[in-house]
Design a protein around this nucleic acid. Structure first.
Length: 675
DNA sequence: AGCACGCCGACT
DNA sequence: GTCGGCGTGCTC
């Protein structure tokens, strides 16, 4: 009997281990097949978890080969397409594939898995009784134990719906790649148990696109920034394709639910898969459509190494599978606009939303609510709720000394002190510590005065100014997803706006000035995105008041498309050589390692280096930081060199527990945040 | 990361 | 004469 061999990706953060290792499959060990989780020995007496990527009859490694220690689970959780995706995404980001897999594959839940395997066995038995056409591009395994591939309980195929005229018909079939600007507005969709729910019209539009894929028996993956959008999209999808064809992959779900959803994707068939940024890696075998909603939202950037943005992962996956791709939002991001300008995406816009956007100056008395806003609010409150978008939660975002004017800071961490409630104990906005007996460090005064207005204070003021109307607050502390159509004032921080049945009668965008006052590359773009998101919640014909803002961002909101604004932003970034007109790499580490890395990168055309400058790190060791800017066309080259330098540097550090000698992060937005 | 192999100072 | 320092290299 000839031995068989498995090539395994080891779950390790070490760049040195970021390649496939070959192991012998002991003849007695069952269930080894591509995609399954295994435990393998590593030099010494260490063992590591990993995934089987390939199984082969011949060995490729000349040296000694160890045996696979155990099969952790026989479920093929790493599909070949997802492995290829993780590898390519990691390569593009100069990071490790295992780091990407950690995001792509949720933790195992033994009970959920057992149930899934039992159903899979049933399905296989049924199929054996009545042989059906075997699926194509399946795992390469030949003679393993009962293959859990068969869709156990796939819902009946979705019949084409001729009644409703679909948006962008044929988009999935033609495998189009589109940058989609969605007009605002809300729509009512039927809910499974009876009744209806109101969701953004964008969700209905995207659900219609997903339906195109599901009708073809393919999967659609729809990536959203967070659970608020996910809820709307889920409702719209359930109405469009049926509850049984919608899978949620949400980190907020309980682990078992999340894993069950993940395993349903493995089943295949016509499915709409929705989830946060990690859903872009969902195990879909016949991917027809990939959608990224609101791609400008910072939540779509993975905060873990190698810090891949869901939009970028989607672009890679589209390239590998050839599926249709939709990068959508209420406002066009500069990144999506770049893809339009280079001819990769087609521009599309769907829907129409008739609202009146009224830019106004701030009230003369320094209060946040201009007269025009009061007027619009009073008028709308006759029949509908009114949304007031503010910058900060709580009562007073800042405090200062009543005697000398010094800004009050936390004694422990130096963060700004604020007040959560009227008359409440001052507390640090950074570390949350309460400042019981505050004393001004410069004049020893003890009197504090409020600076600025948070959501609850604005709510109080509006409640007093417009008596008889209920006021509700929606912010991080008071989460509120929906609202009925009764007149009331809703004060919400950005991103926390509830969806009101039928839409808001008026939307007041306050604090725009403070939003734009911050310095940063993406400040204006992000402001426009957040305003457009709030504007989208307005009812047809509503008034939207944009208070205290001047400059090009106003035009982005008063016009009926944000594309010219995105174009202008992008043109400016291009002239400055700022992202996303160029790609960047931030190089941080030991001065020698940084110098070596920069030397290795020198000579690439159109590449320039900012720095190196001293950077802050652990006390004791010197750190330097440099920013490298380069053209998209050189991405693979730069990433390859960067990875090589990180690898070389990793072989060196000798201090235990010390940070890596060299860290290279591609497309790091942080250095440009303050520009 | 951990752990093994490999060449130079103070010990029984 | 040897025990052991941690500098370099490797992990199937």
């Amino acid at each position: 009997m000839t031995a068989r061999y498995a090539r395994v990706v080891v779950d390790s953060r070490l760049p040195q281990l970021d390649r496939l290792f070959e192991y012998r499959i002991p003849p007695a060990l069952e269930g080894v097949a591509p995609g399954v989780r295994v435990r393998v020995p590593l030099r010494g007496d260490r063992t590591a978890a990993g995934y089987v990527v390939e199984v082969a009859d011949a060995r490729a490694w000349e040296g000694e080969v160890a045996d696979i220690e155990a099969v952790v689970s026989p479920v093929p959780v790493l599909r070949p397409e997802v492995w290829a995706l993780a590898r390519a995404v990691a390569d593009r980001a100069a990071g490790g594939a295992a780091d990407v897999l950690r995001v792509a594959i949720p933790g195992r839940q033994a009970r959920v898995e057992k149930a899934w395997l039992a159903r899979a066995a049933e399905g296989a038995a049924a199929e054996a009784a009545e042989p059906a056409a075997t699926e194509g591009a399946e795992l390469t395994e030949t003679d393993a134990s009962p293959e859990p591939d068969a869709p156990p309980e796939s819902p009946a195929p979705l019949e084409p719906d001729d009644a409703s005229a679909p948006l962008l018909p044929g988009l999935v079939e033609a495998r189009r790649k589109v940058a989609l600007e969605c007009a605002g507005g809300v729509a009512e969709v039927p809910v499974a148990g009876g009744g209806t729910a109101w969701v953004g019209r964008w969700a209905v539009a995207l659900a219609g696109l997903a339906r195109q894929a599901v009708e073809r028996g393919e999967q659609a993956i729809l990536v959203v920034p967070d659970h608020r959008e996910q809820r709307q999209l889920r409702l719209a999808l359930e109405a469009a394709v049926g509850e049984e064809r919608v899978v949620e992959l949400d980190a907020r779900q309980r682990n078992p639910e999340r894993y069950a959803g993940f395993l349903r994707c493995v089943d295949g068939g016509g499915l709409a898969i929705i989830g946060p940024r990690s859903a872009v890696y969902a195990p879909a075998a016949d991917l027809g459509l990939l959608v990224v909603w609101e791609d400008g939202d910072p939540l779509l950037a993975e905060p873990l190494s190698p810090w891949v943005h869901a939009r970028d992962a989607a672009l890679v996956r589209q390239g590998q599978t050839g599926c249709a791709l939709v990068i959508a939002g209420h406002a066009r991001s500069t990144d999506a606009e770049r893809l339009v300008e280079v001819g990769f995406l087609e521009h599309e816009r769907v829907g129409a939303h008739r609202v009146r956007v009224l830019p106004t100056a701030l009230a003369d008395d320094g209060r946040r609510v201009p007269a025009a806003a009061f007027h619009a609010a009073r008028e709308a409150l006759a029949s509908r709720p009114v949304l007031v978008q503010v910058a900060r939660p709580g009562h007073a975002p800042g405090l200062r000394c009543g005697d000398c004017g010094t800004r009050a800071r936390c004694a422990a961490c130096g963060g700004p002190l604020g007040q959560r409630t009227r008359g409440g104990q001052p507390g640090c906005r950074l570390c949350g510590r309460l400042a019981a007996a505050w004393r001004c460090p410069s004049c020893h005064g003890i009197r504090l005065v409020e600076v600025g207005r948070g959501s609850t204070r604005i709510a109080e003021e509006l409640g007093r100014a417009i008596p008889g109307v209920p006021v509700v607050v929606a912010d991080g502390e008071h989460e509120r997803l929906t609202l009925d159509a009764r007149p009331r004032i809703v004060v919400a921080t950005r991103g926390a706006e509830p969806v009101a049945d039928g839409g808001y009668g008026a939307v007041l965008l306050l604090d725009g000035d403070s939003l734009l006052a911050r310095e940063g590359l993406r400040v204006a773009e992000e402001a426009v995105r957040q305003w457009a998101t709030a504007r989208a919640l307005a009812a047809e014909g509503a008034t939207v008041v944009l208070a205290g803002v001047i400059g090009p961002t106003v035009g982005a909101l008063t016009g009926d498309t944000t594309v010219p604004f995105a174009k202008a932003e992008l043109a400016e970034r291009r002239s400055l050589r700022f992202p996303p007109a160029v790609r960047t790499a931030s190089v941080v580490g030991h001065p020698d390692a940084v110098a070596e890395a920069l030397e290795a990168l020198a000579g690439i055309e159109h590449l320039d280096v900012l720095g190196p400058v001293p950077a802050e790190g652990a006390p004791g060791d010197r750190l330097e930081r440099a920013i490298v800017r380069f053209a998209y066309a050189d991405g693979a080259h730069v990433a390859g060199v960067a990875r090589g330098r990180v690898l070389a540097a990793a072989a060196r550090p000798r201090k235990p527990g010390a940070p890596p000698r060299l860290r290279i992060r591609l497309d790091d937005p942080e250095p440009f945040d303050g520009l």
